[in-house]
């Protein structure tokens, strides 16, 4: 009995495997029966996805810019505060709502930064020594408004009067950052929205054309007992594959564009003191793009093949 059921299960598995093998080979012939149509679909998909991918990357670069920026709050401690106290405060602030990160700067580090910023000579180093306290650079979580930032600063000052001397808070920078974040977020939303709409039309149009070409064969196969899932599978796989390829093409195009932009940016960066433009794609979420496109493509094809139904 048990051996029987095991054999049955194994045979069902091998049927499943054979069905998938058939589906792949059929998908492959679907892709190659009109190569120009397939390539055109791929290119249009990549072009539709490119703006969204570019904006996505810009958002990531912006985070880089943010990481280079000083804290949203600069907390100056009293001149007589000890290191242990300061570290304790840093830990406490790190747990506060609205705080993303806290960096502790020793008096020496502050001095070094000051000298660097003011471009003073090393000779003056001794002059400035001993006048800087421990400083905390506190970064806000994204989306915190300038008013909330000011309120928090007041709050902390009241709670730790023994350590905190004063808090410098730059609402303008924070507001700018929030606006920029929102601007990019909404921009990305709209661009992505139109990308998805375009992608859907391209994918479903191609799937329809293919389906139309094989209409007669599909009807015969239905009569021979092919299930809808069986008939749909090659079309879905073909769409999945073009989505994957279109995603790779998108990343490749973006990489080439960025490569051509990196040179002039380098010049700008040195003149204007902008953050460096880093052309790194490895380890970036951009590599998720092919998967994302493949998923979207599969979904579009699935929706457009809904009509394939035995009466």
């Amino acid at each position: 009995m048990r051996r029987d059921s095991r054999r049955k299960r194994r045979s069902r598995l091998s049927i499943w495997r054979r069905h998938w093998r058939q589906a792949w080979s059929q998908a492959w012939s679907l892709l190659w029966e009109k190569p120009l149509e397939s390539v055109l679909t791929l290119v249009v998909m990549a072009l539709a996805a490119l703006p969204a991918a570019a904006l996505w990357l810009a958002g990531e670069q912006l985070q880089d810019v943010e990481l280079q920026a000083p804290g949203d709050w600069i907390v100056f401690t009293h001149a007589d505060s000890r290191e242990a106290q300061v570290r304790e405060l840093a830990e406490a602030l790190g747990k506060e709502a609205g705080v993303q990160a806290v960096t502790v700067l020793s008096p020496e580090a502050v001095l070094r930064q000051y000298l660097q910023d003011s471009a003073l000579d090393g000779e003056l180093e001794s002059l400035a020594e001993g006048i800087f306290p421990w400083v905390l650079e506190v970064r806000a979580t994204p989306g915190l408004t300038a008013e909330q930032g000011a309120q928090l600063a007041g709050d902390w000052q009241q709670r730790w009067p023994g350590i905190i001397d004063q808090i410098a808070h730059d609402p303008a920078w924070q507001a700018l950052r929030a606006h920029l974040g929102r601007f990019l977020g909404r921009g990305l939303f709209w661009v992505a929205f139109f990308s998805v709409v375009m992608l859907f039309f391209v994918v479903s149009n191609t799937a329809h054309l293919r389906l139309r070409r094989h209409q007669a064969a599909i009807e015969v196969m239905q009569v021979l007992g092919a299930s809808d899932a069986y008939l749909r599978r090659p079309y879905l796989l073909a769409s999945l594959f073009s989505g994957l390829m279109a995603g790779l093409l998108t990343v490749l195009l973006l990489w080439l564009i960025l490569l051509s932009l990196s040179q002039p940016w380098h010049g700008l960066q040195q003149g204007l003191g902008l953050p460096p433009f880093r052309l790194y794609l490895a380890g970036q979420s951009l590599w998720l793009w092919p998967l994302l496109l493949a998923g979207l493509s599969l979904l579009s094809a699935r929706v457009s093949l809904q009509q394939l139904r035995s009466e």
Binding site: A216, A217, V220, Q222, L224, G225, S227, Y230
Partner: peptide, 24 residues
């Protein structure tokens, strides 16, 4: 059920008056 129709058809054979062969 709609899913059962392919199952039934797999247990039948149909000779068409107009053959219905796939030409490709």
């Amino acid at each position: 059920k709609p899913r059962g129709i392919p199952w039934l058809r797999q247990r039948m054979g149909f000779v068409f008056q107009d053959f219905q062969l796939l030409n490709d």
